[in-house]
Structure formats: C-alpha cells, structure tokens
Write a protein that binds this DNA or RNA. Sequence first.
DNA 1: GGCGCTTGCCTAACGCATTTAGGTATGCGC
DNA 2: GCGCATACCTAAATGCGTTAGGCAAGCGCC
Lengths: 189, 189
Amino acid sequence: MPRVGLTAERLTRAGAELADEVGFAQVTVSALAERFGVKVASLYSHVRNSQDLKTRIALLALEELADRAAEALAGRAGKDALVAFANVYRTYAREHPGRYAAAQLRLDPETAAAGAGVRHAQMTRAILRGYDIPEPDQTHAVRLLGSVFHGYVSLELAGGFDHTPVTAEASWTWALDSLDALLRERSAS
Amino acid sequence: MPRVGLTAERLTRAGAELADEVGFAQVTVSALAERFGVKVASLYSHVRNSQDLKTRIALLALEELADRAAEALAGRAGKDALVAFANVYRTYAREHPGRYAAAQLRLDPETAAAGAGVRHAQMTRAILRGYDIPEPDQTHAVRLLGSVFHGYVSLELAGGFDHTPVTAEASWTWALDSLDALLRERSAS
DNA sequence: GGCGCTTGCCTAACGCATTTAGGTATGCGC
DNA sequence: GCGCATACCTAAATGCGTTAGGCAAGCGCC
C-alpha cells in the first residue's frame, strides 16, 4: 500500500475544494479520506478531529480572502478602493462558496486573533482613509461596510435575489454608489 | 408507559427552544426525544426526518419574525417605520439566536414561497413607501436594507463587534440614520 | 362496562460518521 | 543493507439517523 503523503496542509486544501463542490456543511472526515483513497482513521495523524479540520479550512479561507483584498487595495484610494475591496468579497464568495461559508465559522477568540481576522479589520479601516471620517463615526462606518458586504453576499448566495428582472449586479453597483455617497457626506472636510 | 401527546407543532416549538439554548446546529432528533422523555423512533411518527424538523423550525421562526415585523410596521411610516422594522430583526436575533439561525436555513423555493418569505419581502418594500423611490431603485433599496439588517445582526451575533469602546448600539443607530438619509436622498420628490 | 380499532410509543436492527487504541510496513538516514 | 520513525492500517466503541414491525392505551360504539 503506497504512502499518499498526507499533511495537514494538503488535507486543508482538499477540504476547501470539497467545500466548494458540495458545501462546507458536507465536508466530512470520511469524504476527505475517500478523496485521498485512504482509510478514515489515517487522517487523525494529521488533524486532531473534525472540528480542527473545519477550523483549518476557515483559517485558510480567511487568509486567501485577506491576500486578495490586500492586492486589490494596493494603489487604490477612495471609491476606487471601496469598489475593489467589495468586489473581492463578492467574487470570492461566488467562486468559492464553500470556502466563504467556512470563513463564517465561529472561531474562538484566540484562534481568530492568531489568524487573518486582524488584517481584515485593518483593511476595512484603510478604505476609509480616503474619506477622512473622524472617530467614532469611523468605527460605525467600518461596521456598516462589513454589514453590507457580508449581508449582500450572503443573501445573493442564498438565492434571495433570483426571480426578478432587476439583476444582482445592478443592485450591487447601486449599493456601492450609495455607500460612497454616504461616506463622502460624513467626511470631515 | 403514559402517552406524552407529541405532535409536529409541539416538537417544532420545543426544537425552537432547544435551538435558542444550544444553537440550531445542535438541534438533533435525539436531543429532542430526550427532552420529551421519549425514545428517538417515536418522533418519526410526527416528523418525516431530521431535515423536515429543521425546516419546520425555520418556518416557525420566519412566521414569528413576520408577525413581529407586521406589528411594528402598523401605524408607522418613513424613518419611524424603518427603525421599528430594523429593531424587530435585531431584537429577535438577540432574544432567539437559535431561531434566527434557523431562519437562515436554505429552503427549497416552493417551501419558502408557501411560508412567510413573501410577507418579509412585501414588508421591506412597504417601508420604502414613505420614501417614494421609483423603480428600479426601489428594488435596489430593498436589497440594500435586507443586506444591512441581516449583515449587521449576523456580525454582531458572531461577536464581531466586541472588544471595542464603541458600542454595537451606537453603530446600529448610526447605520439606521445613514440609511434614512440615503433613502431620502434617493427619493423622487 | 366490555369490544374493537386507531395510533402513539416501543424494541430491534442497520447504515454511516467520529474517534481511539494498537498493529504493520514503508522508506529515509546511516 | 539496516534500523527507526511514522504513514497508514485494522478493529472496535460511540452516537445520530432511519426504518420495520409490535404492543397497548384510550377513544368510539354498543
């Protein structure tokens, strides 16, 4: 019986792919073992348990998202940065629905802090630099942006925007235009 | 062995309570049977399977939410209606986190259409009557409102707004003020 | 009050996922 | 070519979901 060469990272990546294919909730130790042509128990040498595996996938997704967002933000400011950043989230969720669902996993605070969570917070705040909004409004604005991005993407992914002549694209653009106008309104200048 | 008097409705209500106590994901046929002091198989006379049970809980939550929202909207218009409606969602999610999670369950289209989903859509649109927004902007606005409500509540419930001096309350009020201003801006008048 | 019938709840059994304990053999370093 | 670490295995326990079939509770009827 040849050695497959499992590692925690390979399992995590394969788990992420599996999540995109069949949904994060359907990611199971058994399914992953089958995908590698290996017995279930073998995975427990590399991953503590099912929860550990899911946490790793969540952290991978958060990392990937943060990387994409950082690249999108580079060299942009103002509305340009806002739109680019927002589109990273939306595109990632559409391309990788399973990973996006994984990123929503409730992590215990230390795990979240150790991961890319901090980078996300910093980047959202960075967008607002172009709008020059004083505290505490800046924190309010960070939360509003996060809510709109996450809320819109969730509802769209859940199919909430189907069955209407008005496209999800158009509403997305409208929402971003509105947010931009709103932030300019709240600017200190 | 005395008859307990199980019905689908009693199971659904108990399931909803259980969801609020331990989380929707932890609502299981076994746990529910134990709560009634009854063997697991007995539930299958009243509920088709685990999925059916979860669907019933989701529909109950959607119904309750719609009822509360309808009551909040009665006799209100404009920003008053907006704030009241938004607070119904937020308060419900805080009081009944398990039920709120249940309401997010992916339902097949016919089930969703038969339930309270339509009422929710109609009520969100009703809020906008006070702002007199023409189509297609009205649809865009409906989606933006839904995104903010759902997104904010989700993030707050996930603990995303802890660990800062700025309270979640203040940001919520700020967000609603901003939405009101934005909608007045887009009004046809 | 006794009779039968519906049906609420039961026991028994199977399938599948998770997890642990302990065995085997592979292939790297010497 | 040898030894050792360890990658992967078998075996077995546990727990949840689900189905099939049985017993008796309590209602309706006389």
